[in-house]
Simulated assay, not measured.
Amino acid sequence: MIEKRNDWQERLSPRVNAIAPSGIRKFFDIAAQMEDVISLGVGEPDFVTPWSIRESCVYGLEQGYTSYTANRGLPELREEIARHYADEYGCSYDADTDILVTVGVSEALDLVMRAILAPGDEVLIPEPCYVSYQACTILAGGKPVAVPAKIENEFRITPDELEEHVTPRTKALLIGYPNNPTGAIMTRKDLLAIAAFAEKHDLIVISDEIYGDLTYGGEKHVCFSSLPGMQERTILLNGFSKAYAMTGWRIGYALGNKAFISAMTKIHQYTMLCAPITAQIAAIEALRHGEKYMKKMVAEYDRRRHLIYDGFTKMGLPCFEPKGAFYIFPDITSTGYTSDEFAEELLKAEHVALIPGSAFGACGEGHVRCSYATSIDKISEALARIENFLKNHKR
């Protein structure tokens, strides 16, 4: 008779045991049990998806569009994505072979890692960065290699910093600009230098551009695959969650050469099969007629950006002025608290939820991430509460 074992944790996959739970969810869970909480932690637009986009979905349901689609997504959606990148960035993607529609950008990131990584392959990841980057690398059997970006360089990464971490096992570079959590962007000059580095070391570049439409102050997003010689080696990730306020629709896409997209599709067809048809129909409408709504939302984010930047600066918490996305990353080292301590004590004392910078990598310690994807009134009240906390709780 086989003896029963109760060591269930040890019997889990070592890769799963190697990753920590999301540092973001912890504070959401605490805040959910409290009253009168103002959240600056959610990386989600506070706008409702524009009506014309919702209406297209309703119409599709009325017409009975409830079936599977092709694994790669509706041909009409892939054609709209290809047209958008041709018109906006001068990129030429074949809708039949170079585009995969996914269940959010999160699925696209997971597919990329599983498609390209062999056990032990290293991925250079500038930090601070989105919490899923390291986890998805580990789950695919790869090794994430953190490359700290510095506040004195406005959290932009440089080839010299990358050179310090490249090894013979380095296979890919994963970049996410505009950046979550810092709000940093990379200029064309910056990215050309990164492109030269990638070519020098023959790296695959994974470019997460989900915040590409959210830039401010006259800055325009530079699509990495539009740079000379980069489209062939780049897997570009994007979606509709942030720019069109469509987080719950779970609709994203990946662009890349035929080999990359075919490999990702092979995994996708065995796991997700296809993205929901209703979300794909809504995404078509977003690309065709959603720009005017998106621009209005971006203008409102810009107004909030100025308010929150001025607020933190005036209360003595140094900030890099964000140029993209909808986050700000103030330095809280002067308070004497660690990032986690600051977030926990602020939540308890003033009922303001934000995310410790350490959740986005070790070099995020000493900072906190605040989202300004919430109303002006809530941002103003949150700033007043934070200022009160600083007066009464600084160590």
Rank of each mutant, 00 (worst) to 15 (best):
M1N: 13
N6E: 12
N6K: 11
D7P: 06
W8V: 08
Q9H: 14
L12E: 10
R15P: 07
V16K: 10
V16I: 12
V16G: 11
A20Q: 08
K26S: 07
D29C: 05
A32V: 05
A32I: 03
M34A: 04
E35G: 11
I38E: 04
I38V: 02
V48R: 14
V48W: 10
P50I: 00
W51A: 11
I53R: 03
R54A: 08
S56H: 09
S67G: 14
Y68D: 15
A70L: 14
N71V: 15
L77R: 00
L77I: 00
R78G: 05
H84C: 11
H84S: 14
D87P: 07
C91W: 01
S92Y: 11
Y93T: 01
D94S: 13
G104P: 02
L109M: 04
L109F: 02
V112W: 06
I116T: 06
P119K: 04
P128G: 03
V131N: 05
A135T: 04
C136Y: 12
T137V: 04
I138R: 07
I138F: 05
V145I: 08
K150E: 13
E152Y: 14
R156V: 05
D160S: 13
E164H: 12
P168S: 13
P168K: 11
K171P: 06
K171Q: 09
I175D: 00
P178G: 03
T182W: 00
T182C: 01
D190T: 00
I194L: 03
I194H: 02
I204Q: 09
V205Y: 05
L214H: 10
T215Q: 05
G217L: 02
E219R: 14
E219M: 13
E219A: 15
K220T: 12
H221T: 08
C223K: 09
L227G: 01
E232A: 10
R233C: 04
R233Q: 07
T234Q: 10
L237R: 02
S241P: 10
S241I: 09
A243L: 01
A245K: 01
T247C: 13
L255K: 03
G256S: 12
I261L: 03
S262H: 09
K266V: 12
I267R: 02
H268Q: 12
T271I: 05
L273M: 09
H289G: 09
Y293H: 14
M294E: 08
Y301R: 00
D302E: 14
H306P: 07
K314H: 14
K314N: 12
G316F: 10
G316N: 08
L317W: 05
K323T: 15
G324E: 07
Y327C: 15
I328Q: 05
T333V: 01
S334K: 14
T335E: 04
T338N: 13
F342N: 03
L347A: 04
F360H: 02
F360I: 00
C363F: 09
E365R: 06
S371E: 04
A373V: 00
I379P: 03
R385P: 07
I386M: 05
E387A: 15
N388I: 11
L390Y: 03
